[in-house]
Nucleic acid binder design. Structure first.
Length: 947
RNA sequence: GCCCGAGUGGCGGAAUUGGCAGACGCUCAGGAUUUAAAAUCCUGUGUCCUUACGGACGUGCGGGUUCAAGUCCCGCCUCGGGUACCA
């Protein structure tokens, strides 16, 4: 009995595609190319998750469709395989991270092949391949060899960096040190996020609420020598070039916010006696605004220079360089204690304290350059050393944080901006210092500037500050330079050698490992367990690796490794030319394939990966290795797939039901009774036990409708036990069903709950497709007798053309869920037809093929075709055949539908009106009414206004 | 707190430019087929009123614009996600 049996069909076609290299990327790239890319996965030990195939199926459908419309397609897959989990696993099991990673990759490849994706497997890469990270190291050296020319807004070779005459005179060593200060990859000794549990430092982006992103371990600040990448130099371009790409607005905004560009002014407040202020100001006006931080002034950054008249005190960060100098002898001990405490505090503690502000007075005053009045200088940890100048002018009347601080320490509050007239804010209260207003408005208490609107004021005041050289306009970014080194084993080694002197100490001279000596492979290390101290595991490599001698000079290798992000910053380029051993990519091939036309992946990479990759791309672009300024033309984020919907109810310790609205979660994420905090039992219910409230939106217990229950889909997680394994779905329903279901669930970008019943639903559809063509009662696999070479009817032809049109359009807009529903309608229609002309069945199978490729290939063959349908021309439709001759037009009276008439398409509104008014039902309904107006929309509706 | 996104039947979701709300699928109910079951096929399935014919209501809530609003405008509510002292 030839029933639809995916377990037999699917492996057979997968083998066919593999053996025939059906999806090998063509070497001749035609004008119309498609580069469809998935965010490559981290090959975890758990294997593929059902979230992975969602995006992968979408790009696969687009790729398969593109081949059929004649495009040349590049559709590759690879693995982002460096990273902490493999190393942690290796430590735990005393094994090699490489072996573990390779095993996981094999599982992933097997699972991906089971899903029938049309990847060109000859291009498979892993970031951990030595042949791959050779070029990651090479790109690092490009960064090392590049400085950013701010005037040209462009990265240039370090050899083109202008060297000041006095440096030149000081000799080669001075020149090298000078260059090192400008490189895009540079060493720094700044405080970093050190995570003792992971034994490594982390990027700001990898620390969430003072805990590590991976594993939730505490993170502390400590100064360490680190490699940094100067991503801040590219901040403006990373922001402005977002207009060039077709990305979701939300993601663009996230990147913009992350870059956090703000404009305002830097203002110097004179430190010294009020009597010398005029002299200071005059000297300033003569000499101009100093580039470097002056010693006789405190420099602040503000986005609201228009509130300068309201600056009643100043605050510097505890780490600010001038703390000691500004602290008076009397205040010395308490300031020192405050700063020491702040330094001890972890980021986590700082978060907790954020609700209340603390600070201490330094004892010093600075002179407001516009009013000439002295203001006290305080130290407080609500000012960050790393942003702006690490010092602020505090305007408590117009900044919520300053307001809170001023209230706590009884500092004066002066209102200088009146809210817009319409506002409900009470001006009296504002003037009395009782409330704070942070918006824009009209200047008050600002001498000659009074009455100016905020925006005008800003421009005027900057002009004034500029003319006397006490201030200037300035731009700031939230974006920080990228901390690029990790103290772990399982990452790319840096291709950098540190020159040593006779005594074995670093001379400070660095030497890049030359191209011919790349890659720098990971050495064998007996034990790479983190020990809670910041010496990287590579320090334990043998001397031969650690201390190379070149031209008689002894060097020590850099022993930090690169972070996981490094490999994923450029993998999309390597896919274009994966086996090239003389360059990271052939420039000709790069021109043919870049940019990536469609990039699909999860929104969790909205800032990190996408920002880092764009940054590297721009550097490589500036240095002439690439021809596009942006790597990813169109980006789509797939939504998260949640677990099946769950109903939960709550019971107290006396086994009594508790209604859901009386519960809440406590700090330990346990469900408790809101009123008393009593811990409750969480009971998972069978859907049978739940029902919807009679008049309300809540679900309640069927047995006791007074008790509300929770109905929600949760994120899939091991602990919740709601994880769906794709292998199980494939075994039970088939890969085509899994692919189809994930596409049918809803819009790609939306998060949606899994439903086993839904999988069964699409499997049902595939069964129906099978039966539409196959005679299930026959002994051998053969066509159903309904399938014939009969001439199709007009209705049948229209059905096909409508379906072709809808499916084609939906693939273009990635509306896969509606494409599938249109194909379901086609099948519903034809299974009722006793004659199913083969000439209509064939195009339908082609339409289905990108979605359910195994089944489509099988049926295509059954219909008598010899070869794979992968490159068959996509069916075309005739516009005139996509509409019916007759249309049903509703007739409304006062906007309410009264009847429907079936008429020929294309009637004018006059004709429509006449037909409507003659309709017997309408005539009856209009009796006694006066027709005031008739609106007729051709082929759509008629609305009669009558009363 | 701030910034996004979303609220449509029992559930997932459809609905060019405002123009027939609920396509398609699931669920459930009834029927056919069968010795029986599975599978399959057919019919029905927003709510309320009505024996029926039919009618009223209905896209989170309250207003508004319009001949006509899920769609546009104003004001809220709830949920999901992101983010957090960035001056």
């Amino acid at each position: 009995m030839p029933k639809y049996n995916p377990a037999e069909i699917e492996p057979r076609w997968q083998r066919f595609w593999d053996e025939n290299k059906t999806f090998k990327t063509p070497t001749e790239v035609t004008e119309e190319k498609l580069y469809a890319l998935d965010m490559f996965p981290y090959p975890s030990g758990e294997g593929l998750h059902v979230g992975h195939p969602e995006g992968y199926t979408a790009t696969d459908i687009v790729s398969r469709h593109a081949r059929m419309i004649g495009k040349t397609v590049l559709h590759p897959m690879g693995f982002d395989a460096f990273g902490l989990p493999a190393e942690e696993h290796a430590i735990k099991h005393n094994a090699s991270p490489r072996e573990f990673t390779e095993k996981n990759i094999n599982t992933f490849v097997r699972q991906l092949k089971d899903l029938g994706f049309s990847y060109d497997w000859d291009r498979q890469i892993s970031t951990t391949d030595v042949d791959y990270f050779k070029w990651t190291q090479w790109i690092f050296l490009v960064l090392f060899d590049t400085w950013f020319d701010a005037d040209e807004q462009k990265g240039r070779p370090i050899s083109e960096l202008p060297i000041p005459a006095e440096i030149k005179e000081a000799g080669e060593y001075a020149i090298r040190k000078y260059q090192d200060e400008f490189r895009l990859a540079f060493e720094s000794h700044a405080p970093v996020n050190w995570c003792p549990a992971l034994g490594t430092v982390l990027a700001n982006e990898e620390v969430v609420d003072g805990l590590s992103d991976v594993g939730n371990h505490p993170v502390q600040r400590m100064p360490l020598r680190q490699w940094m990448l100067r991503i801040t130099a590219y901040a403006d371009r990373l922001e402005s070039d977002l207009d060039q790409v077709d990305w979701p607005e939300g993601i663009k905004k996230l990147q913009c916010d992350w870059i956090g560009r703000s404009t305002g002014a830097e203002v110097d407040f004179f430190i010294g006696d009020k009597s010398q202020f005029e002299t200071w100001k005059n000297t300033r006006t003569e000499n101009g605004f100093p580039q470097a931080l002056p010693e006789d002034a405190l420099r602040v950054y503000t986005t609201r220079p228009d509130t300068l008249y309201g600056a009643t005190y100043m605050v510097i960060a505890p780490e600010h360089g001038a703390v000691e100098e500004l602290t008076t002898a009397e205040q010395g001990p308490i300031v020192k204690k405050y700063c020491d405490d702040a330094a001890m505090k972890s980021d986590r503690d700082r978060q907790d304290d954020r609700t209340k502000k603390s600070g201490v007075f330094t004892g010093s005053y600075a002179i407001n350059p516009i009013t000439g009045q002295p203001v006290p200088i305080w130290v407080a940890d609500y000012v960050l050393a790393s942003y702006g100048t690490g010092a602020i002018m505090a305007v408590p009347a117009h900044d919520a944080r300053d307001f809170e601080f001023a209230k706590t320490y009884n500092l004066p509050i002066v209102a200088v901006v009146a809210p817009p007239a319409k506002g409900e804010l009470d001006l009296e209260k504002l003037l009395a210092g009782e409330i704070c207003f942070a918006g824009v408005g009209t200047a008050i208490n600002s001498e000659s500037f009074d009455g100016l609107a905020t925006d005008e004021f800003k421009i005027k005041i900057i002009e004034t500050l500029d003319s006397t050289a006490v201030g200037r306009s300035a731009v700031n970014y939230k974006l920080r330079d990228w901390l690029f080194s990790r103290q772990r084993f399982w990452g790319e080694p840096f291709p950098i050698l540190h020159e040593l002197d006779e005594a074995g100490n670093r001379t400070g001279i660095m030497r890049p490992v030359p191209l011919e000596s790349l890659p720098v492979d990971l050495p064998f290390v007996e034990d790479f367990q983190p020990h809670g101290r910041p010496e990287p595991p590579l320090e334990k490599a043998d001397d031969e690796w650690l201390f190379p001698v070149i031209d008689g000079k002894k060097y020590k290798r850099e022993t930090n490794t690169m972070p996981q992000w490094a490999g994923s910053c450029w993998y999309y380029l390597r896919f274009i030319d994966p086996h090239n051993d003389s360059a990271f990519i052939d420039p000709e091939l790069e021109k043919q394939w870049m940019p990536v036309d469609l990039y699909i992946g999860g929104a969790e990479h909205a800032v990190l990966h996408l920002l880092y990759a764009r940054f590297w791309h721009k550097v490589l672009f500036d240095r002439g290795y690439l021809h596009t300024p942006e790597p990813f033309k169109k980006l789509v984020n797939q939504g998260m797939i949640l677990g099946d919907v769950e109903f939960t109810a709550f019971r107290d310790t006396n086994e009594q039901w508790v209604s859901a609205e009386l519960t809440c979660e406590n700090d330990e994420r346990k469900t408790v009774l809101q009123a008393t905090g009593e811990e409750l039992h969480v009971v998972k219910l069978d859907p049978e036990q739940a029902e919807k409230e009679k008049d309300g939106d809540n679900f309640v217990l069927k047995s006791d409708p007074q008790i509300r229950i929770d109905s929600r889909a949760y994120k899939m997680s091991k602990s919740r036990g709601n994880v769906v394994n794709p292998d199980v779905i494939i075994a039970e329903y088939g890969a085509d069903s899994l692919r189809l279901y994930e596409m049918f669930m809803g819009p790609l970008h939306q998060s949606k709950p899994w439903s086993m019943a839904g999988v069964n639903g699409v499997r049902n559809f595939l069964d129906r497709v099978w039966r539409m063509l196959v005679d299930e009662k026959a002994e051998e696999l053969s066509l159903s007798s309904a399938v014939s070479d009969h001439a199709p009817t007009d209705e049948q032809i229209r059905m096909l053309h409508k379906t072709i049109k809808a499916v084609s359009k939906d693939i273009e807009t990635l509306g896969f869920n509606t494409a599938i529903s249109r194909m379901m309608e086609f099948v519903n229609f034809f299974t009722k037809q006793t004659e199913r002309p083969q000439s209509l069945m064939e195009p339908f199978i082609l339409l289905l093929s990108p979605f359910a490729p195994h089944l489509a290939e099988e049926l295509w063959k059954l219909l008598g075709n010899e070869s794979s349908l992968a490159y068959e021309p996509w069916p075309k439709f005739d516009e005139s055949l996509t509409v019916d001759a007759l249309v049903e037009v509703p007739i409304q009276i006062m906007g309410k539908i009264k009847t429907k008439i079936s008429i020929e398409r294309g009637k004018s509104n006059k004709e429509l009106e006449a037909i409507a008014l003659q309709d017997p039902k309408i005539v009856t309904l209009l009796e006694g009414l006066t027709v005031r107006k008739i609106i007729a929309v051709p082929d759509k509706l008629v609305n009669i206004v009558a009363n």
